[in-house]
């Protein structure tokens, strides 16, 4: 019960800061929208490459990637806030006030999820407004959002673990770069089958590839590799929750 109270308090404070500060809320909405515009608008001709078979069109194809990207970066950006809290000493206040400190990690994760849900809603509205076609039925889109929420959880827990180990804003690139690489070493612009060479080999073992392909399957109404995708996303979330809690223990030991 006290853990829940701590989690809610930490989440409230993080969300309050984000949504009352235009410098934080605008990039959160603008960047995914911008990537969606740049990829879906600028590269739509790629859909004409032989072998590119995605019935819902390039807008829907890119929407799934940008949605997952916003989920992952929503987590990382929340991680920046954690690093800032340690740098300014505010985290010490949280560590002191929270009887059960795992509630702090849960609070940050809850904030990252709520923060991303706003972005996801905004992005979805824009996508439908510009004519995105969806082939799936009732359950397919929620399944995509659930998958993205797991990606969000994995990303915030990864970033949280880094922030609590380094306890400095200098941790920013370390949080960001691996997430960037995992995202972009997946089939971002074309389906997996059209990738060749080293990038194909990397994409094959990249867990995000399963998530991306399954997500595109949901939007097309023909889900593929659903179990593998959920397994990969949930596996990452569990793995990084252990990473985050160990990070918390390291922060506690460091004082």
């Amino acid at each position: 019960m006290r853990n829940l109270s701590v989690a809610r308090a930490v989440a409230w404070r993080t969300l309050h800061n984000v949504f009352t500060n235009p410098g934080l809320v605008i990039p959160q909405l603008a960047f995914p929208l911008f990537f969606f515009t740049a990829f879906a608008g600028g590269l739509s001709h790629i859909h004409d490459v032989r072998g590119f078979a995605y019935p819902e069109g390039y807008t829907a194809f890119q929407f799934v990637f940008v949605l997952l990207q916003s989920a992952a970066f929503g987590g990382v950006f929340t991680g920046f806030g954690i690093a800032r809290d340690f740098e300014t000493g505010f985290a010490r206040r949280l560590l002191l006030a929270a009887p059960h400190r795992t509630g702090i990690v849960s609070g940050y994760a809850l904030a990252a999820l709520c923060r991303w849900l706003v972005t996801a809603a905004f992005l979805t509205c824009v996508a439908f407004a510009v004519g995105m076609k969806v082939g799936g039925h009732g359950v397919d889109l929620p399944a995509l959002y659930l998958l993205a929420a797991l990606v969000n959880a994995a990303a915030i827990l990864w970033a949280c673990g880094v922030a609590m180990r380094l306890r400095s804003m200098q941790a920013g690139p370390i949080m960001q770069m691996p997430v960037f690489l995992v995202l972009f070493f997946a089939p971002v612009y074309v389906p997996l089958g059209l990738l060749t060479g080293w990038i194909h080999a990397v994409a094959l073992v990249n867990p995000l590839t399963r998530v991306l392909e399954a997500g595109r399957g949901f939007v097309a109404g023909s889900p593929t590799e659903v179990a593998a995708a959920y397994g990969a996303a949930a596996g990452l979330a569990v793995l990084f929750s252990l990473w985050a809690v160990r990070g918390l223990r390291k922060a506690e030991a460091a004082g």
Partner: peptide
């Protein structure tokens, strides 16, 4: 950070895009 990032980041983006967008050359 100011030295390495401008060297490494554009090369990473080059690697990512040249891998992912190679299919474009068939257009």
């Amino acid at each position: 950070a100011a030295t390495i990032f401008p060297l490494v980041f554009p090369m990473l983006l080059l690697a990512v895009n040249s891998g992912g967008l190679r299919a474009e050359t068939h257009l």
